[in-house]
Structure formats: C-alpha cells, structure tokens
Design a protein around this nucleic acid. Structure first.
Lengths: 199, 199
DNA sequence: GAGCGCACTTACCGATCGGTAAGGGCTCAA
DNA sequence: TTGAGCCCTTACCGATCGGTAAGTGCGCTC
C-alpha cells in the first residue's frame, strides 16, 4: 500500500531532519532507513522540499492539537488553562524531542522565509498563549508587548530545555538530569502562578 | 598578512555557519565572501572542522567573558550579580544574534558529540549561573536540580528569544517587536527578582 | 640578483548531492 | 491473455561537496 509507505517515509524523514537538519539529510538516507532507494521516495514526494514541508505541516498540526487539547481539558479559568497548556507543551517536548528539534531548526534555517510569511505555522500557538496570559488576573493590565514577552519566556524555557536534553544528560549524567527533569515542570508551574496571580 | 586574512575568514565563517549551519556552509562560500578561493581557506585551516572548531572556541571564550565581566562589575550581592549576568547575556544575544544561532545549532547538530564531552564549552557558563542562583536568599535551600532547572529556564528565555528575533519581526512587524524587545529585559529582571528574593 | 618561503592560484580527484528517464514486476480488470 | 496502472528499480545526469597536488608571483634576505 502506498499510504503506509508514505507514512513510514515521513516518520523516517522526521527523525533524520530532527537529527541532522535539512541540508544534512539526504534523500537516499531517508529512503535507506526503509530499505528503499531514493527514487522510491521521489515517487511519493516529488522534491525534497515537499517531503520536508509535509513533515513540518504534520508537526504544526500536532502541536496545535496539544495546545487546544490542554486548553479544552480545563475550565474557563485562564490561569489553570495557561498552566495546563505550558505543561502539556513541556510534556510533549520531553516525550518527543524530535519535534522540538525540527521547530528550532526551522527557526534557524528559514528565518528569512518564515519572516516573510505572515502566517508562520507556529503563530496560532503564540497568539493563543499570549491571549491566555492576558486573561490572567495578574496580567489584565499588561500590554500586548508585555504579555508576548512573558509568552516567549515560557516557550523558550520549555523548548530550549527540550532541545538540550541529550547534551545535558551527557554532561551531568543520567541520574542528575532525571532530578532536573522532575524539577522542571514544578518550576514552570511556579513561575506561571507567580506571574499570573493577581497582585 | 596571514593573521588578518585568518581573522576575516573566521568572521565570514561565523556569519555563514550562523545563517546556514555547518552542513549548509561550503568552504567555497566562506572564501568567496573575501574574494578568495577555497584553497586559500584550506591554506589557513586544514579541514572544515578545524575552521568550525575555531569559530566555536572564540564564541565560547566571548560568552564566558560576558558572564565574568557582568559578574565582576557587580558587588558580592548574588541577586544583583545574577540579574546582571542574565541581562548581559540578553544584551549580547540581541546585539549579536549570530552567536546565539551558532550555539543553538551546535546544540542540535552535535548533541551526540557534545554528550560524550564532559567539558562542553558552555558548561562553565551553566555552572556559574547555577551557583549564583543558589547563593540567592530565595534559593538557599534549593537542591542542585531545582536551581539548575531555574538556570535553564532563564537561559532558555534569553536564547530562544534571540534566535527567534528575525522571524518574529517578520510576523508581527518591526514596531510591535521593538516594544516586545523593550519589555523583554524588564520581564527577565522581574522574573529573577521574584525567584531570587527571600520568602 | 639568486634563492627562499609565504600566501594564494589553477587543476584535478572521488564521493555525493537532488533529480530525470526508462523499464520491470506485480495485481487486477476485461 | 492481454493491457493498464501502481510501486519500485537500475542507469544516468550535471552540479557541488571537501580535500590533494602542483605550481606561481611576490617580498625579503643574504
């Protein structure tokens, strides 16, 4: 079946793009991961950019799903919803660091392209978190810029940590980093509560 | 003079590595930025890795200089010193986003290599910030893991924002992002004071 | 002014890149 | 039994990659 091969190719491509980036990943390498030739890959995706674009599209849909899901699981309380959204992003990024890696790479590689695209694929995510933040009692009088700065601090804290995971484990050891990983969501939660609470 | 050419090659290489990554940067491209052939570059640096390594070495030395400088400019007050260190890193990353981009790329590309290197070139930076944090009254009873989590949240907030600058400007416009950039150090300062203060 | 070495060139190498062209084997319908 | 179409193959293309080998011109020393 073509559909199954397509899925497996996309999975292999996601792994390799995350690991080695767009330039560092060859079509032959992706196809080889399934025991196929690169022409089999080119049969399913006409160009390398098409393959990459499809990987990105699925990632962005999935991230948005994480955010929406966390948001809906909570009631209308903005602080709780914001907390759950950030923690859900943190959990997702820890469970599957590939996604974080690719998002970061996209930020680095295609900042020129992304800059001209008003509708960057992560923008809905940013806008939703910022809106949630401004709905919190502690930030009710915050300007867009102030709320956005806080959004980015939260997002940066989540994503940067996820991207660093493997390096940190190598540096400090598995045990020490397990402790840090346990402390991380608690610290995130505390930070959100401090800045979201009234007063 | 050889030394001057070497410096200019390193500067060009830094720009291109930041922009397109290790795999996406060719020796011919770096040399071409100076109007030279790639063999001129290979005369000064025997291998591509040697060029890249030298760029990394200078960046790490410079970052450590920023941290040490900010630390020494302050008195023995840990909260003030920590604040100044983080803000100095923020200013440096805003002034010269290339450095941030390369550090992030290194995190993504060489996590396997970096993981086996116990002395990753950014480790002193992490350790110093963590030590500063634990010297703050609000964190005096924090474990290493707890303090390290906070360190990484601060660092992530600084670096992720710097790496995103160009994309964000393209998405939200120059004016809006100028406001955010103005709000950012204030938000960082507030966050540090909240978590570092006694109580 | 002959010789020497520094800084750089042209010429070339094999490997690998993304992508095209053409064909082969398989299934299934008529 | 034949023909169509799907999925994948081998064969090949020009461009570009990092890197080697062998000069070349220029300035300096003796």
């Amino acid at each position: 079946m073509a559909e199954e091969t397509r899925e497996r190719l996309l999975a292999a491509a996601q792994t390799l793009f995350a690991e080695r980036g767009f330039h560092g990943t060859s079509l032959a390498h992706v196809a080889g991961a399934l025991g196929l030739t690169k022409q089999a890959l080119l049969y399913h995706f006409k160009r390398k950019e098409e393959l990459y674009g499809e990987v990105l599209r699925r990632i962005s849909a999935r991230l948005l799903g994480v955010v929406r899901g966390a948001q809906e699981a909570q009631g209308p309380d903005a602080v709780e919803a914001l907390t759950e959204v950030i923690l859900a992003l943190h959990r997702a990024s820890q469970r599957d660091p590939q996604v974080t890696r690719i998002v970061l790479r996209e930020l680095l590689d295609n900042h020129a392209r992304a800059a001209s695209a008003k509708d960057w694929y992560l923008r809905p995510l940013l806008d939703e978190i910022t809106a949630l933040l401004r709905a919190c009692p502690g930030q009710s009088r915050a300007s867009f810029a102030e709320a956005f700065a806080l959004t980015y601090q939260l997002l940066g804290a989540v994503e940067y940590f996820a991207a660093s995971g493997e390096t940190l484990r190598g540096m400090y050891g598995e045990a020490a980093m397990a402790e840090v990983a346990a402390a991380y969501p608690k610290a995130l939660r505390r930070q959100i509560q401090r800045l979201a609470a009234a007063g």
